[in-house]
Design a protein around this nucleic acid. Structure first.
Lengths: 254, 254
DNA sequence: CGAGCATTTGACACTAGTCAACGAAGGTGG
DNA sequence: CCACCTTCGTTGACTAGTGTCAAATGCTCG
């Protein structure tokens, strides 16, 4: 319905960083209160635009955190590299997301472009100054953090007790919601990342991801056009597949 | 070592809500910058103290979010009740934690006292007013949210690919870190919650939790004094048990 | 058009979930 | 203070979902 979340005119907004805040903290406020042009301009003067090719590293875990990033276009994955050289994906980041929060002045994970990416690079020192001066900006950041927090909690929920099919189903719904807030209309769902990335995010093997997609398709819940594009055919069936696979096995004891 | 995080004199601090911020955003700042007495006093005038018995509900998912809570003593669990009446535990909350963030003015999950609990109840409307007026307070809240965000991401990581023993091992380490920031010295680790609660947090059955504790004990990594108290005997062995159980099976193919 | 990688499909083993029953605590009331 | 009762914790089977290994196929990009 009139779920008009921060409807920016399609295409990149005027100029300067923008943070999307799809939900909020207190009752009685309208959804989506993006930065004003003034505030964006304030940040624009200290931000520079950078571009990255697919697969390029944006920053590495443990590096001095000199800047935060505000994605303009493209998709970024934030991940930790495990001792055995595998990677666990903390999250996927999309246009208008804020990337590069640090702890003790160092990045807590690495970030890499999943697709070609363009973003604003905002030096932390300059941002800190702005934050101290502009209470409204603070408020926006708080809203953004609340949103990210809930997303992380959703991620944990997704990982908690679901079987492969349910995880993939929830991931599809997650992407759909996400793309719906970005684009105007979402006929097809776009998967910018590989099966391995999805697996690293969902805590399962790429093979299992593949099998789950195929199973959902054979049930008629979704349709796979190609590796990167799918469509939800039967929403109810998708829901049902998720629900029915929420709990493990079904250890039959006579 | 000298990880002197917000060392409050033992016992409840002077008076008024306090938020602990064990880590921070930008480099060049000292760890832990708690609220000043002024700020605490500012919040104290709008806060009231409430007490809950073990097992009592603090608020329920979907209710109008009229207040946020700042725990003084005790442990709270934040959870979602699933359709089949099971519960998924989003997180455990300890003294100085902030509980009750809302979305669209409603609580996103339920909260219940795991032990007897006392807390400050802060009406959201009053808090919002204070936030708009006091930029420093904003900054504290941002720090707190960053911390919670990282904790949620850690939770997701924990759930992602670990076998039972590794999950329980990581949970033990998590509790140790947590209690180390609270108390002065931590000889023994206290488990305020039941095995079922731990299972609901770790995404596994209570039986598996039990088995994992027992296995870790039989390996000599930990010692179980009773249901609620354990001690880490061999830290290296605990680490090893976690690492070796990070990845699943080991499907032997000849 | 070829090389290399992503994805798919197949086979087998292992972990952990469910069911079930017992043991241990803790709380209540007599 | 003891006996009962409910809840929690532990232990023992059995089973099935999913990871690993392996190999075939299909895209993509150079």
């Amino acid at each position: 319905m009139a779920a008009s979340k921060t409807r920016n005119p399609s295409g990149p907004p005027g100029g300067g960083p923008s943070i999307i805040v799809p939900d909020l903290w207190f009752p009685g406020e309208k959804p989506g209160h993006p930065l004003t042009d003034d505030e964006r301009a304030l940040l624009a003067v200290i931000a520079t635009v950078s571009r990255y090719k697919k697969g390029e590293t944006i920053y590495r875990e443990g590096e001095q955190a000199a800047a935060v990033f505000n994605i303009i276009t493209g998709v970024v994955k934030s991940f930790k590299t495990l001792p055995d050289n595998e990677q666990y994906i903390v999250g996927f980041l999309f246009p208008k997301d804020l990337v590069g929060l640090a702890e003790y002045g160092r990045y807590v994970n690495s970030a890499e472009a999943v697709t070609p990416v363009s973003l604003y690079r905002i030096p932390t020192t300059a941002l800190e100054t702005r934050l101290r001066q502009n209470a409204k900006l603070d408020f926006e950041v708080i809203g953004k953090l609340c949103h990210d927090l809930r997303e992380a909690q959703h991620h944990a929920f997704l990982l908690s007790k679901h079987r492969a099919i349910a995880k993939v189903g929830l991931f599809v719904q997650f992407l759909e919601t996400l793309e719906a807030t970005q684009r105007e209309f979402t006929e097809e769902i776009y998967l910018p990342m590989t099966r391995s990335d999805i697996g690293a995010y969902l805590g399962m093997s790429p093979e299992a991801v593949s099998r789950s997609f195929r199973e959902l398709a054979s049930r008629g819940a979704i349709a796979l056009r190609n590796r990167r594009h799918l469509k939800i055919i039967d929403r109810a069936l998708l829901e049902a597949s998720i629900a029915e696979n929420r709990e493990p096995p079904a250890a039959s004891r006579k």
